Simulated assay, not measured.
Amino acid sequence: MKLTPWKIRSVAAALVLSAAPFAMTGCQSSVAGQTLPSPWYLRDDVQFYPAGPEFLLPNQVRALEEYKLRQAAEEAGIDPGLEGF
């Protein structure tokens, strides 16, 4: 049996089309409801997200302290002014 270029191309196309669904599936697999990692999970780069500040309301505390200072200044008869503005 002689392989013509047409037969070689058709066999190659059949191989590519049969392998395409496996190539497009992604790196995770789902087996019995479990999402399993890829076989290369030990070689994957780890994305690190540093922890944010533990106290999430620093601006509110600063505003309340400024408000208390202004109230104390007004009670003492001192003009607090608008220094921060």
Results as ranks from 00 to 15, higher is better:
T35P: 05
N59Q: 13
P80D: 01
V46Y: 03
A19Y: 02
F22Y: 12
P80Q: 00
Y41C: 06
Q28W: 15
V11R: 11
E74D: 09
L64C: 05
G33K: 07
V46T: 00
E83T: 04
V61W: 03
A12T: 05
E65P: 02
N59L: 09
G26N: 11
T25M: 15
G33D: 07
P5V: 10
A20I: 10
E54S: 07
G26I: 07
G26S: 12
A51D: 04
A14K: 09
A20C: 09
R62I: 01
A12D: 12
V61S: 03
T35N: 14
P21I: 12
A51R: 02
K68I: 11
T25N: 14
Q47K: 11
E83A: 07
N59P: 01
E65G: 02
L69K: 12
T4C: 06
L56M: 06
S30W: 08
D44S: 13
L3E: 05
Y49C: 06
Q34G: 06
A73W: 04
L42W: 12
V46E: 01
V46R: 01
L56N: 05
G26M: 10
G84C: 01
E83L: 08
G84H: 02
E54H: 06
P5G: 12
A73P: 02
V16M: 08
K2Y: 11
E83M: 07
